[in-house]
């Protein structure tokens, strides 16, 4: 004997969660994964000024890696990415430890350290560009104090422009790293710390042996988030150095924009975007995988 058929309205009711998720999921499938495939296809096509779907294999990638502008962009990304991540983490960690010393007015100081995170990279870039103005900026001020050889006009110098980017990016993100580390510091088990201090461990030892090692997961998160920020960096370059002088401080994201919207090289632009995606995926996929898997075991 067959079971009585489930009424239609019940079936709808039972499927409601799926029905509700469907539009969002469909949007993500189309606008993220579909578009990735689409860009991937353009990167293997003849496209120049307009998309053109004649398949040419990896020719655009070959051309991409022949371009000096792209090599410079990649090299800059490594310098910028490495320094940005390292310095932001060192400063962020230091600030978190400093603020963790039972400071009066902690909330107030934290507000000051974190406000750059609320503003656009475009503003950050504009502000630092003005501070680094060669004739009216900080350079002139400090020279006026008697330090004649002081140089801060970094944005106009081919070798220093990348460091100007690092400096502004660290300024914007160090507070964020601090917030991450501070919340992790606060969640370290106080009993262990008490026990160690009763055993006569110095505060320095407690920090380096107990507290900092326990922050490995936060440390990983910070590295991944900052790396992701570094690869996506676009607006900061636009506002601070314009990628210049020449293209000395250009980054892959700016290269992509330049090729796609200014030079009618859509195919090369798409190829560069795919390389960026691959770089992000190489960092994010293992991280997300371990995060999601790790959670299930808890």
């Amino acid at each position: 004997m067959s079971r009585p058929p489930i009424p239609f309205t019940d079936r709808i009711a039972r499927a409601l969660p799926q029905i509700v998720v469907a539009p969002s999921f469909a949007a993500i499938l189309f606008f993220v994964y579909g578009f990735i495939a689409w860009t991937g296809y353009i990167s293997m096509s003849k496209s120049k000024m307009l998309p053109n779907y004649d398949f040419v294999g990896i020719r655009q990638y070959w051309r991409l890696f022949q371009m000096d502008r792209w090599s410079v962009a990649l090299e800059n990304l490594f310098i910028f990415g490495f320094l940005f991540i390292a310095v932001a983490i060192v400063i962020g960690c230091l600030l978190a430890v400093l603020l963790d010393q039972r400071i009066r007015a902690e909330g107030f100081i934290r507000t000051i350290y974190l406000y750059p995170m609320a503003i656009s990279f475009i503003i950050t870039g504009t502000a630092w560009k003005w501070i680094m103005n060669p004739s009216l900026g900080l350079e002139t001020v400090v020279r006026g104090w008697g330090w004649e050889s002081f140089r801060f006009g970094w944005t106009n110098d081919e070798t220093l422009a990348v460091y100007a980017l690092v400096m502004a990016a660290v300024w914007q993100s160090a507070g964020f790293v601090m917030a991450l580390f501070l919340s992790a510091l606060r969640s370290v088990d106080q009993d262990i710390i008490k026990a160690a201090s009763l055993d006569g461990a110095s505060p320095w030892k407690i920090y380096t042996r107990i507290i900092l090692p326990s922050m490995r997961p936060v440390f990983m998160s910070a590295v991944v988030i900052l790396a992701h920020l570094a690869i996506k960096s676009f607006d900061l370059v636009v506002a601070l150095t314009g990628g210049g002088p020449g293209y000395a401080s250009t980054l892959p994201a700016n290269f992509m924009y330049e090729m796609t919207f200014r030079r009618n090289e859509i195919g090369v632009g798409a190829a560069s975007a795919m390389v960026m995606l691959a770089t992000v995926a190489a960092i994010m996929v293992p991280y997300l995988y371990s995060e999601l898997r790790g959670k299930k075991h808890v």
């Binding site: 993220v32 578009f35 990735i36 353009i42 992509m256 924009y257 975007a273 995606l277 994010m284 997300l288």
Partner: peptide, 17 residues
């Protein structure tokens, strides 16, 4: 997981489409 990865896609890869 598929939606989550959408947080980290560099937007350059969706601009043209």
């Amino acid at each position: 997981a598929l939606i989550l990865f959408g947080c980290f896609v560099p937007f350059q890869v969706v601009i043209l489409p």
